[in-house]
Amino acid sequence: MTILKVDSVSAGYVPESNILHDLSLELNEGEIVSVIGPNGAGKSTLLKTIFGLLKPKSGKIQLKNEVISGLKPFRIAQKGVSYVPQVNNVFPSLTIQENLEMGAFIRSDDYSDTMEEVYTLFPVLKERKNQKAGQLSGGQRQMVAMGRALMLKPEVLLLDEPSAGLAPIFVSSIFDKIKEINATGVSIIIVEQNAKEALKMSHRGYVLAMGQNVLDDKSDALLANEEVGRLYLGG
């Protein structure tokens, strides 16, 4: 069943020029979908548009059967979508614990169970829960950012280049965590430079170029596709 549907969306930061052109994407329940493509293809812009940070100029975005395009980010968050930006994705002067609490800001129920789940997923965060997030390493920050996003118990998680700037040893562990998160029933859209690794763990993939759909298929098929391999997977 489709949980999130991007339907012929065009969007951009300035009135005259668009970055996304008539772009469409579907995310099914329980799936990981990778969005790959060269720099400037509009991958990050797509996530920002889904999350309401950018208003589509045409087309619409639906969460289950409800149109969410045009809503403010905090409304979209309330409806069960979490977003992890690529950079500046923690509150540096807040402690880890406080960062996670902020993730639950719009929840009015008791969220201590969710926090325990996040700590179980990222035990290292629990050890350092009173440390300021600004003092953490890149990999740990990424964990804080994901943990913060999970505090909402989202149905859909949007990840913008979670492996960017991480040492290779952390990359695989972050990808493992993403699979674990997915296993708990969260549907995930992941935007990645590290296209091969991303496709390996996802169910389906979308290839973008110049803000347009180029190709979409099962991940295995994309990995096997010679042209995709040559153009986007670096060999």
Binding site: F51, P73, F74, F91, L94, E98, N99, I106
Partner: peptide
Amino acid sequence: RATADNTDLALVTG
């Protein structure tokens, strides 16, 4: 404090 730290992220956080 979170908003003072990073307004964009505060917005993203809901």
